[in-house]
Deep mutational scan, measured.
Amino acid sequence: MAAGGDHGSPDSYRSPLASRYASPEMCFVFSDRYKFRTWRQLWLWLAEAEQTLGLPITDEQIQEMKSNLENIDFKMAAEEEKRLRHDVMAHVHTFGHCCPKAAGIIHLGATSCYVGDNTDLIILRNALDLLLPKLARVISRLADFAKERASLPTLGFTHFQPAQLTTVGKRCCLWIQDLCMDLQNLKRVRDDLRFRGVKGTTGTQASFLQLFEGDDHKVEQLDKMVTEKAGFKRAFIITGQTYTRKVDIEVLSVLASLGASVHKICTDIRLLANLKEMEEPFEKQQIGSSAMPYKRNPMRSERCCSLARHLMTLVMDPLQTASVQWFERTLDDSANRRICLAEAFLTADTILNTLQNISEGLVVYPKVIERRIRQELPFMATENIIMAMVKAGGSRQDCHEKIRVLSQQAASVVKQEGGDNDLIERIQVDAYFSPIHSQLDHLLDPSSFTGRASQQVQRFLEEEVYPLLKPYESVMKVKAELCL
Protein backbone atom coordinates (compact mmCIF):
# COMPACT_ATOMS: atom_id res chain seq x y z
CA MET A 1 0.00 0.00 0.00
CA ALA A 2 1.38 3.40 -0.93
CA ALA A 3 2.48 5.77 1.82
CA GLY A 4 0.38 8.83 2.50
CA GLY A 5 -3.37 9.04 2.68
CA ASP A 6 -6.46 11.15 2.36
CA HIS A 7 -6.00 13.43 5.35
CA GLY A 8 -9.58 14.68 5.14
CA SER A 9 -10.97 11.16 5.47
CA PRO A 10 -12.12 9.64 8.78
CA ASP A 11 -10.23 6.53 7.69
CA SER A 12 -6.88 8.35 7.72
CA TYR A 13 -4.92 9.65 10.70
CA ARG A 14 -4.79 13.40 11.09
CA SER A 15 -2.81 15.22 13.76
CA PRO A 16 -5.06 16.31 16.65
CA LEU A 17 -3.07 19.54 16.73
CA ALA A 18 -4.63 20.48 13.40
CA SER A 19 -7.97 18.71 13.64
CA ARG A 20 -8.78 19.46 17.28
CA TYR A 21 -6.67 22.12 18.94
CA ALA A 22 -4.73 24.74 16.97
CA SER A 23 -6.25 27.88 15.47
CA PRO A 24 -7.21 28.06 11.77
CA GLU A 25 -4.71 30.86 11.18
CA MET A 26 -1.77 28.85 12.55
CA CYS A 27 -2.86 25.72 10.69
CA PHE A 28 -2.98 27.73 7.47
CA VAL A 29 0.58 29.02 7.89
CA PHE A 30 1.78 25.40 7.97
CA SER A 31 -0.56 24.19 5.22
CA ASP A 32 0.51 22.86 1.83
CA ARG A 33 -1.27 25.73 0.11
CA TYR A 34 0.67 28.34 2.05
CA LYS A 35 3.94 26.50 1.54
CA PHE A 36 3.68 25.92 -2.19
CA ARG A 37 2.19 29.33 -2.87
CA THR A 38 5.25 30.79 -1.12
CA TRP A 39 7.50 28.64 -3.32
CA ARG A 40 5.87 30.22 -6.37
CA GLN A 41 6.23 33.68 -4.85
CA LEU A 42 9.94 33.03 -4.31
CA TRP A 43 10.34 31.92 -7.92
CA LEU A 44 8.59 35.11 -9.02
CA TRP A 45 10.80 37.31 -6.83
CA LEU A 46 13.90 35.57 -8.19
CA ALA A 47 12.77 36.08 -11.79
CA GLU A 48 11.89 39.74 -11.17
CA ALA A 49 15.29 40.42 -9.61
CA GLU A 50 17.13 38.52 -12.35
CA GLN A 51 15.25 40.51 -14.99
CA THR A 52 16.07 43.81 -13.26
CA LEU A 53 19.75 42.85 -13.22
CA GLY A 54 19.77 42.16 -16.95
CA LEU A 55 18.98 38.49 -17.53
CA PRO A 56 16.80 37.77 -20.62
CA ILE A 57 13.45 37.41 -18.84
CA THR A 58 10.43 39.09 -20.42
CA ASP A 59 7.60 41.07 -18.86
CA GLU A 60 5.23 38.52 -20.36
CA GLN A 61 6.94 35.70 -18.48
CA ILE A 62 6.82 37.68 -15.23
CA GLN A 63 3.13 38.44 -15.70
CA GLU A 64 2.35 34.81 -16.46
CA MET A 65 3.98 33.77 -13.19
CA LYS A 66 2.10 36.46 -11.25
CA SER A 67 -1.20 35.32 -12.72
CA ASN A 68 -0.69 31.73 -11.61
CA LEU A 69 0.58 32.09 -8.04
CA GLU A 70 -2.69 30.70 -6.68
CA ASN A 71 -3.37 28.27 -9.53
CA ILE A 72 -1.85 25.20 -7.89
CA ASP A 73 -2.79 21.77 -9.22
CA PHE A 74 -2.07 19.70 -6.12
CA LYS A 75 -3.04 16.45 -7.82
CA MET A 76 -0.56 17.04 -10.64
CA ALA A 77 2.15 17.99 -8.15
CA ALA A 78 1.58 14.78 -6.19
CA GLU A 79 1.77 12.70 -9.36
CA GLU A 80 4.95 14.48 -10.43
CA GLU A 81 6.54 13.93 -7.02
CA LYS A 82 5.63 10.24 -7.15
CA ARG A 83 7.31 10.03 -10.55
CA LEU A 84 10.37 12.18 -9.82
CA ARG A 85 10.86 11.45 -6.10
CA HIS A 86 11.63 15.16 -5.66
CA ASP A 87 9.11 17.61 -4.24
CA VAL A 88 10.73 20.81 -5.53
CA MET A 89 11.12 19.59 -9.11
CA ALA A 90 7.55 18.28 -8.99
CA HIS A 91 6.35 21.81 -8.27
CA VAL A 92 8.71 23.35 -10.83
CA HIS A 93 7.03 21.16 -13.45
CA THR A 94 3.53 21.88 -12.09
CA PHE A 95 4.13 25.65 -12.08
CA GLY A 96 5.65 25.42 -15.54
CA HIS A 97 2.61 23.55 -16.83
CA CYS A 98 0.35 26.53 -16.08
CA CYS A 99 3.08 29.02 -17.09
CA PRO A 100 4.32 27.58 -20.42
CA LYS A 101 6.00 30.81 -21.53
CA ALA A 102 7.84 31.18 -18.21
CA ALA A 103 8.59 27.48 -17.73
CA GLY A 104 12.16 27.80 -18.98
CA ILE A 105 13.19 30.49 -16.49
CA ILE A 106 11.46 29.18 -13.34
CA HIS A 107 14.05 28.27 -10.67
CA LEU A 108 16.84 29.75 -12.81
CA GLY A 109 20.19 29.29 -11.03
CA ALA A 110 18.52 28.13 -7.84
CA THR A 111 18.73 24.98 -5.74
CA SER A 112 15.92 23.26 -3.86
CA CYS A 113 16.81 25.03 -0.62
CA TYR A 114 16.20 28.37 -2.29
CA VAL A 115 12.48 27.68 -2.06
CA GLY A 116 12.55 25.14 0.78
CA ASP A 117 14.65 26.96 3.34
CA ASN A 118 13.54 30.47 2.48
CA THR A 119 9.92 29.38 2.75
CA ASP A 120 10.64 27.81 6.13
CA LEU A 121 12.13 31.09 7.34
CA ILE A 122 9.12 33.04 6.08
CA ILE A 123 6.84 30.56 7.84
CA LEU A 124 8.84 30.78 11.09
CA ARG A 125 8.65 34.57 10.98
CA ASN A 126 4.93 34.64 10.25
CA ALA A 127 4.17 31.97 12.84
CA LEU A 128 6.06 33.98 15.46
CA ASP A 129 4.04 37.02 14.40
CA LEU A 130 0.90 35.03 15.21
CA LEU A 131 2.16 33.92 18.62
CA LEU A 132 3.40 37.30 19.86
CA PRO A 133 0.00 39.05 20.17
CA LYS A 134 -1.55 35.90 21.63
CA LEU A 135 1.05 35.81 24.38
CA ALA A 136 0.64 39.55 24.92
CA ARG A 137 -3.10 39.06 25.41
CA VAL A 138 -2.51 36.34 28.00
CA ILE A 139 -0.18 38.67 29.89
CA SER A 140 -2.71 41.49 29.65
CA ARG A 141 -5.55 39.36 31.05
CA LEU A 142 -3.40 38.14 33.91
CA ALA A 143 -2.22 41.70 34.58
CA ASP A 144 -5.86 42.78 34.98
CA PHE A 145 -6.40 39.85 37.33
CA ALA A 146 -3.30 40.71 39.38
CA LYS A 147 -4.19 44.39 39.64
CA GLU A 148 -7.72 43.65 40.85
CA ARG A 149 -6.45 41.25 43.54
CA ALA A 150 -3.16 42.93 44.41
CA SER A 151 -4.14 43.30 48.08
CA LEU A 152 -6.14 40.08 48.61
CA PRO A 153 -4.16 38.06 51.19
CA THR A 154 -3.67 34.37 50.57
CA LEU A 155 -1.62 31.64 52.14
CA GLY A 156 1.75 31.22 50.48
CA PHE A 157 3.24 27.78 49.96
CA THR A 158 6.82 26.59 49.81
CA HIS A 159 7.31 22.84 49.26
CA PHE A 160 3.48 22.93 49.04
CA GLN A 161 3.49 23.48 52.79
CA PRO A 162 1.98 26.60 54.41
CA ALA A 163 4.42 29.50 54.47
CA GLN A 164 4.16 33.28 54.93
CA LEU A 165 1.17 35.06 53.46
CA THR A 166 1.32 36.65 50.03
CA THR A 167 -1.50 38.09 47.92
CA VAL A 168 -3.43 36.55 45.05
CA GLY A 169 -2.20 39.36 42.79
CA LYS A 170 1.44 38.93 43.81
CA ARG A 171 1.30 35.20 43.10
CA CYS A 172 -0.17 35.96 39.67
CA CYS A 173 2.76 38.31 39.03
CA LEU A 174 5.10 35.33 39.37
CA TRP A 175 3.28 33.84 36.39
CA ILE A 176 3.29 37.12 34.48
CA GLN A 177 7.02 37.63 35.00
CA ASP A 178 7.84 34.30 33.34
CA LEU A 179 5.52 35.07 30.44
CA CYS A 180 7.09 38.51 30.00
CA MET A 181 10.47 36.83 29.63
CA ASP A 182 8.92 34.53 27.03
CA LEU A 183 7.44 37.50 25.15
CA GLN A 184 10.82 39.23 25.06
CA ASN A 185 12.52 36.04 23.89
CA LEU A 186 9.93 35.41 21.17
CA LYS A 187 10.37 38.98 19.92
CA ARG A 188 14.15 38.66 20.01
CA VAL A 189 14.25 35.39 18.08
CA ARG A 190 11.75 36.78 15.57
CA ASP A 191 13.81 39.93 15.00
CA ASP A 192 17.03 37.90 14.77
CA LEU A 193 15.72 35.75 11.91
CA ARG A 194 17.76 36.13 8.74
CA PHE A 195 16.86 35.07 5.22
CA ARG A 196 18.83 32.27 3.56
CA GLY A 197 18.74 34.29 0.40
CA VAL A 198 20.10 33.37 -3.03
CA LYS A 199 23.11 31.13 -2.38
CA GLY A 200 23.18 28.16 -4.78
CA THR A 201 23.88 24.51 -4.12
CA THR A 202 26.63 24.72 -1.50
CA GLY A 203 26.24 28.34 -0.50
CA THR A 204 28.96 29.71 -2.80
CA GLN A 205 26.60 31.43 -5.28
CA ALA A 206 28.61 29.84 -8.11
CA SER A 207 25.59 29.32 -10.39
CA PHE A 208 24.56 32.96 -10.11
CA LEU A 209 28.11 34.16 -10.65
CA GLN A 210 28.06 32.19 -13.90
CA LEU A 211 24.66 33.60 -14.89
CA PHE A 212 25.98 37.13 -14.42
CA GLU A 213 29.27 36.35 -16.16
CA GLY A 214 31.46 36.86 -13.11
CA ASP A 215 29.83 40.10 -11.92
CA ASP A 216 30.14 39.91 -8.11
CA HIS A 217 28.12 43.08 -7.61
CA LYS A 218 25.10 41.74 -9.50
CA VAL A 219 25.16 38.51 -7.50
CA GLU A 220 25.17 40.50 -4.26
CA GLN A 221 22.42 42.75 -5.58
CA LEU A 222 20.33 39.71 -6.51
CA ASP A 223 20.66 38.34 -2.98
CA LYS A 224 19.78 41.72 -1.47
CA MET A 225 16.80 42.34 -3.76
CA VAL A 226 15.16 38.97 -3.09
CA THR A 227 15.81 39.33 0.64
CA GLU A 228 14.06 42.71 0.67
CA LYS A 229 11.15 41.41 -1.42
CA ALA A 230 10.65 38.70 1.21
CA GLY A 231 10.48 41.32 3.95
CA PHE A 232 13.75 40.50 5.70
CA LYS A 233 16.27 43.14 6.75
CA ARG A 234 19.26 40.89 6.12
CA ALA A 235 20.32 37.50 4.85
CA PHE A 236 23.02 35.12 5.98
CA ILE A 237 26.37 35.89 4.40
CA ILE A 238 27.50 32.32 5.02
CA THR A 239 25.40 29.21 4.35
CA GLY A 240 26.00 25.67 3.26
CA GLN A 241 23.26 24.27 1.11
CA THR A 242 20.87 25.17 3.94
CA TYR A 243 20.69 27.93 6.50
CA THR A 244 22.33 26.77 9.72
CA ARG A 245 20.03 24.49 11.67
CA LYS A 246 21.07 26.35 14.81
CA VAL A 247 18.25 28.73 13.88
CA ASP A 248 15.72 25.96 14.48
CA ILE A 249 17.32 25.30 17.87
CA GLU A 250 16.97 28.96 18.80
CA VAL A 251 13.32 29.12 17.79
CA LEU A 252 12.21 25.86 19.39
CA SER A 253 14.18 26.60 22.57
CA VAL A 254 12.12 29.74 23.07
CA LEU A 255 8.91 27.82 22.41
CA ALA A 256 9.97 25.08 24.83
CA SER A 257 10.67 27.72 27.46
CA LEU A 258 7.17 29.10 26.90
CA GLY A 259 5.87 25.57 27.42
CA ALA A 260 7.63 25.40 30.79
CA SER A 261 6.04 28.69 31.86
CA VAL A 262 2.55 27.59 30.87
CA HIS A 263 2.99 24.21 32.57
CA LYS A 264 3.95 25.89 35.85
CA ILE A 265 1.04 28.35 35.68
CA CYS A 266 -1.55 25.70 34.89
CA THR A 267 -0.17 23.35 37.54
CA ASP A 268 -0.63 26.12 40.11
CA ILE A 269 -4.20 26.66 38.92
CA ARG A 270 -4.89 22.92 39.19
CA LEU A 271 -3.55 22.82 42.75
CA LEU A 272 -5.58 25.89 43.70
CA ALA A 273 -8.66 24.23 42.20
CA ASN A 274 -8.10 21.27 44.50
CA LEU A 275 -7.88 23.70 47.44
CA LYS A 276 -11.10 25.31 46.15
CA GLU A 277 -9.46 28.74 46.21
CA MET A 278 -9.51 29.33 42.45
CA GLU A 279 -11.03 27.71 39.37
CA GLU A 280 -10.72 27.97 35.64
CA PRO A 281 -13.94 28.75 33.73
CA PHE A 282 -16.53 25.97 33.89
CA GLU A 283 -19.40 26.06 31.39
CA LYS A 284 -23.01 25.57 32.49
CA GLN A 285 -23.39 22.43 30.36
CA GLN A 286 -19.85 21.15 30.96
CA ILE A 287 -19.51 17.61 32.37
CA GLY A 288 -16.57 16.88 34.65
CA SER A 289 -17.00 13.12 34.89
CA SER A 290 -19.28 10.55 33.28
CA ALA A 291 -19.57 8.75 36.63
CA MET A 292 -19.26 11.56 39.20
CA PRO A 293 -21.66 14.42 38.35
CA TYR A 294 -20.29 16.71 41.08
CA LYS A 295 -16.83 16.87 39.52
CA ARG A 296 -15.41 20.20 38.30
CA ASN A 297 -12.18 19.07 36.70
CA PRO A 298 -9.64 21.72 35.58
CA MET A 299 -9.75 20.27 32.06
CA ARG A 300 -8.30 23.30 30.26
CA SER A 301 -5.34 23.59 32.60
CA GLU A 302 -4.76 19.86 32.29
CA ARG A 303 -4.79 20.18 28.50
CA CYS A 304 -2.23 22.98 28.69
CA CYS A 305 0.03 20.85 30.87
CA SER A 306 -0.34 17.86 28.58
CA LEU A 307 0.54 19.84 25.46
CA ALA A 308 3.25 21.88 27.19
CA ARG A 309 5.10 18.66 28.00
CA HIS A 310 5.02 17.78 24.31
CA LEU A 311 6.28 21.24 23.39
CA MET A 312 9.16 21.04 25.84
CA THR A 313 10.36 17.73 24.40
CA LEU A 314 10.37 18.94 20.78
CA VAL A 315 13.51 21.03 21.25
CA MET A 316 15.51 17.80 21.26
CA ASP A 317 14.76 17.33 17.55
CA PRO A 318 16.57 20.42 16.21
CA LEU A 319 19.42 19.87 18.67
CA GLN A 320 20.07 16.44 17.23
CA THR A 321 19.39 17.55 13.66
CA ALA A 322 21.96 20.35 13.82
CA SER A 323 24.53 17.94 15.21
CA VAL A 324 24.29 15.54 12.24
CA GLN A 325 24.49 18.05 9.39
CA TRP A 326 27.72 16.82 7.78
CA PHE A 327 29.74 19.39 5.86
CA GLU A 328 27.43 21.48 3.61
CA ARG A 329 24.32 19.40 4.52
CA THR A 330 22.78 15.97 4.72
CA LEU A 331 19.14 15.01 4.37
CA ASP A 332 18.95 13.95 8.02
CA ASP A 333 17.07 17.17 8.64
CA SER A 334 14.27 17.00 6.09
CA ALA A 335 11.70 14.52 7.40
CA ASN A 336 12.30 15.52 11.00
CA ARG A 337 11.82 19.23 10.34
CA ARG A 338 8.56 18.61 8.47
CA ILE A 339 7.20 17.32 11.78
CA CYS A 340 8.86 19.19 14.63
CA LEU A 341 8.65 22.77 13.34
CA ALA A 342 4.95 22.61 12.58
CA GLU A 343 4.12 20.68 15.74
CA ALA A 344 6.01 23.14 17.94
CA PHE A 345 4.10 26.13 16.62
CA LEU A 346 0.71 24.42 16.54
CA THR A 347 1.27 23.28 20.12
CA ALA A 348 2.39 26.72 21.30
CA ASP A 349 -0.60 28.25 19.53
CA THR A 350 -2.97 25.85 21.28
CA ILE A 351 -1.66 26.42 24.79
CA LEU A 352 -1.74 30.20 24.35
CA ASN A 353 -5.32 30.14 23.04
CA THR A 354 -6.32 27.90 25.94
CA LEU A 355 -4.46 29.91 28.58
CA GLN A 356 -6.04 33.13 27.32
CA ASN A 357 -9.45 31.50 27.66
CA ILE A 358 -8.58 30.41 31.20
CA SER A 359 -7.23 33.82 32.19
CA GLU A 360 -10.34 35.57 30.90
CA GLY A 361 -12.56 33.58 33.26
CA LEU A 362 -10.57 32.75 36.40
CA VAL A 363 -12.82 32.51 39.46
CA VAL A 364 -11.50 33.27 42.96
CA TYR A 365 -13.20 32.20 46.19
CA PRO A 366 -12.16 34.74 48.88
CA LYS A 367 -14.11 33.03 51.67
CA VAL A 368 -12.25 29.77 51.13
CA ILE A 369 -8.95 31.65 51.07
CA GLU A 370 -9.92 33.47 54.27
CA ARG A 371 -10.80 30.23 56.00
CA ARG A 372 -7.46 28.66 55.11
CA ILE A 373 -5.66 31.74 56.40
CA ARG A 374 -7.57 31.46 59.69
CA GLN A 375 -6.43 27.85 59.99
CA GLU A 376 -2.74 28.73 59.66
CA LEU A 377 -2.40 32.36 60.71
CA PRO A 378 -2.48 31.77 64.49
CA PHE A 379 0.75 29.78 64.28
CA MET A 380 2.33 32.43 62.05
CA ALA A 381 1.27 35.19 64.44
CA THR A 382 3.02 33.71 67.48
CA GLU A 383 6.18 35.77 66.99
CA ASN A 384 4.13 38.98 66.80
CA ILE A 385 2.25 37.95 69.94
CA ILE A 386 5.51 37.33 71.80
CA MET A 387 6.85 40.75 70.76
CA ALA A 388 3.62 42.44 71.90
CA MET A 389 3.84 40.71 75.29
CA VAL A 390 7.47 41.81 75.75
CA LYS A 391 6.45 45.40 74.95
CA ALA A 392 3.71 45.06 77.59
CA GLY A 393 6.33 44.08 80.21
CA GLY A 394 6.39 40.29 79.90
CA SER A 395 9.38 37.95 79.70
CA ARG A 396 10.22 36.65 76.24
CA GLN A 397 11.22 33.23 77.57
CA ASP A 398 8.11 32.84 79.74
CA CYS A 399 5.88 33.93 76.86
CA HIS A 400 7.65 31.61 74.43
CA GLU A 401 7.02 28.64 76.71
CA LYS A 402 3.36 29.56 77.18
CA ILE A 403 2.91 29.87 73.41
CA ARG A 404 4.73 26.59 72.81
CA VAL A 405 2.42 24.67 75.13
CA LEU A 406 -0.75 26.26 73.77
CA SER A 407 0.41 25.75 70.16
CA GLN A 408 1.00 22.05 70.74
CA GLN A 409 -2.46 21.72 72.27
CA ALA A 410 -4.06 23.53 69.32
CA ALA A 411 -2.09 21.41 66.83
CA SER A 412 -3.35 18.27 68.54
CA VAL A 413 -6.94 19.44 68.09
CA VAL A 414 -6.30 20.00 64.37
CA LYS A 415 -4.39 16.79 63.68
CA GLN A 416 -5.81 14.29 66.16
CA GLU A 417 -9.43 15.46 66.37
CA GLY A 418 -9.89 17.11 62.97
CA GLY A 419 -10.99 20.33 64.63
CA ASP A 420 -10.22 23.96 63.84
CA ASN A 421 -7.14 25.77 65.02
CA ASP A 422 -8.16 27.19 68.42
CA LEU A 423 -4.83 28.70 69.46
CA ILE A 424 -6.20 32.23 69.58
CA GLU A 425 -9.18 31.13 71.68
CA ARG A 426 -6.73 29.52 74.13
CA ILE A 427 -4.72 32.74 74.29
CA GLN A 428 -7.89 34.79 74.78
CA VAL A 429 -8.89 32.81 77.89
CA ASP A 430 -5.40 32.64 79.37
CA ALA A 431 -4.93 35.36 82.00
CA TYR A 432 -1.20 35.51 81.29
CA PHE A 433 -1.95 37.19 77.95
CA SER A 434 -4.51 39.67 79.32
CA PRO A 435 -2.20 42.68 78.69
CA ILE A 436 -2.55 42.13 74.91
CA HIS A 437 -6.06 40.68 74.59
CA SER A 438 -7.27 43.97 73.10
CA GLN A 439 -4.50 43.83 70.46
CA LEU A 440 -5.20 40.34 69.15
CA ASP A 441 -7.47 41.41 66.28
CA HIS A 442 -4.81 43.81 65.04
CA LEU A 443 -2.05 41.24 65.48
CA LEU A 444 -4.07 38.77 63.41
CA ASP A 445 -4.98 41.10 60.54
CA PRO A 446 -3.89 39.14 57.42
CA SER A 447 -2.93 42.32 55.56
CA SER A 448 -0.19 42.97 58.12
CA PHE A 449 1.48 39.70 57.06
CA THR A 450 1.70 40.35 53.30
CA GLY A 451 4.64 42.74 53.44
CA ARG A 452 5.00 44.91 50.33
CA ALA A 453 3.13 42.48 48.06
CA SER A 454 0.52 44.97 46.83
CA GLN A 455 3.13 47.68 46.23
CA GLN A 456 5.29 45.18 44.35
CA VAL A 457 2.35 44.30 42.11
CA GLN A 458 1.68 47.94 41.28
CA ARG A 459 5.32 48.72 40.56
CA PHE A 460 5.85 45.57 38.49
CA LEU A 461 2.81 46.23 36.32
CA GLU A 462 3.63 49.89 35.76
CA GLU A 463 7.38 49.56 35.18
CA GLU A 464 7.68 46.24 33.38
CA VAL A 465 4.40 44.83 32.13
CA TYR A 466 2.47 47.75 30.65
CA PRO A 467 5.46 49.12 28.66
CA LEU A 468 6.08 45.63 27.25
CA LEU A 469 2.45 45.34 26.12
CA LYS A 470 2.23 48.79 24.51
CA PRO A 471 3.14 47.62 20.95
CA TYR A 472 0.21 45.17 21.08
CA GLU A 473 -2.54 47.60 22.18
CA SER A 474 -4.39 47.34 18.87
CA VAL A 475 -4.94 43.56 19.19
CA MET A 476 -5.83 43.34 22.88
CA LYS A 477 -9.61 43.06 22.46
CA VAL A 478 -9.56 39.70 20.65
CA LYS A 479 -11.26 37.01 22.74
CA ALA A 480 -10.19 33.37 22.90
CA GLU A 481 -12.99 30.95 22.06
CA LEU A 482 -12.57 27.23 22.61
CA CYS A 483 -14.69 24.71 20.74
CA LEU A 484 -13.49 21.76 22.82
Rank of each mutant, 00 (worst) to 15 (best):
W43R: 00
V138G: 09
D182G: 03
T154N: 05
V475M: 14
L331V: 08
M387R: 03
K233P: 14
N126H: 14
V247E: 08
A322P: 03
I265Y: 14
Y13V: 15
I237G: 07
L53G: 04
R85T: 05
M76S: 12
F28T: 08
D120F: 12
R338E: 03
G203K: 02
S323H: 03
K295E: 04
G393C: 07
A392S: 10
S140V: 13
E463R: 12
L131A: 13
D192Y: 10
F74G: 12
E79H: 10
E80F: 06
A110D: 10
D192N: 08
L108A: 14
A273P: 03
K284S: 11
I427L: 13
M292D: 00
Y21A: 00
L352G: 07
E277N: 02
R245H: 00
F95Q: 06
L319N: 00
T242Y: 04
Q320C: 09
A410E: 03
R190C: 11
E60V: 10
N126E: 14
H442C: 11
K187Y: 12
P467T: 12
N185F: 07
K35A: 10
V219F: 04
R245S: 01
M299A: 15
T154A: 09
D32R: 10
L461F: 07
E80N: 12
F345N: 09
M299W: 00
G109E: 01
V405H: 10
L275W: 12
V368K: 05
D333N: 01
F327Y: 12
P16E: 06
P281I: 07
D11L: 09
R37T: 09
S23A: 13
Y114N: 01
D445A: 15
I339H: 12
Q325D: 05
K170L: 08
D215Y: 15
C173E: 02
T382D: 02
H107D: 01
R37P: 00
W43I: 01
Q164M: 13
A260M: 06
L331K: 04
R149L: 08
T321Y: 08
E81F: 00
Q320I: 12
N68C: 10
F195W: 08
S31M: 03
Y114R: 00
K218V: 07
D430L: 06
N185E: 09
K402I: 07
K75P: 12
Q458G: 13
D216H: 10
Q325W: 04
D248V: 02
V262L: 10
Y294T: 02
D144G: 14
T158P: 00
S448K: 14
E302Y: 01
H437I: 12
V168C: 07
Q164H: 04
I106S: 05
E463G: 13
A127M: 02
T202F: 00
D120I: 06
I123P: 02
K66M: 07
T204E: 01
S301W: 01
L183C: 10
R371E: 00
S140M: 15
W175K: 05
G104D: 09
K415T: 07
I358A: 15
Q286D: 00
G109Q: 00
K218A: 11
Q210W: 00
F236R: 05
I369L: 10
L42G: 00
I57N: 03
L131W: 00
A230S: 08
L341E: 09
G8Q: 15
E462F: 13
M26S: 03
E343C: 07
N185A: 12
A110E: 04
M387P: 01
K229W: 03
A348T: 14
D349Y: 06
T350F: 05
I139A: 08
L319W: 02
G109N: 04
D317R: 02
C99D: 00
F30R: 01
S395P: 04
I72Q: 13
Y472S: 14
D73Q: 07
E228T: 13
P24N: 13
L55V: 09
S140C: 13
Q375D: 05
L258Y: 14
D182W: 03
S407H: 02
G54C: 08
R171E: 01
E64S: 13
L128A: 13
G54A: 13
Q285N: 13
V363F: 07
I238K: 01
N126K: 12
M76C: 14
Q375E: 06
E279I: 02
P293V: 01
A163D: 03
G231L: 06
W43Y: 05
Q409P: 03
L252K: 03
F345P: 02
S412L: 14
E80A: 14
I62R: 05
P56N: 10
P435G: 08
L341Q: 14
T330H: 02
L142E: 05
A381L: 10
K101A: 11
F28M: 11
Q286L: 01
D192W: 06
T239I: 10
V189S: 13
L121T: 10
L193C: 10
L440C: 09
S19T: 00
D441H: 11
E279M: 06
S434I: 09
S434F: 11
N421F: 04
D178W: 04
M89P: 00
A256F: 02
P471W: 15
N421V: 10
T350P: 06
Y472F: 15
V247H: 11
S290T: 09
S301A: 06
R33W: 08
D192R: 10
V315E: 04
I72A: 07
L319I: 11
R426G: 08
L130Y: 08
E25C: 07
M76W: 11
H93R: 12
V115R: 01
P298V: 03
R33P: 08
L482Y: 08
V115G: 02
S412K: 14
L406T: 07
L423I: 08
K233N: 14
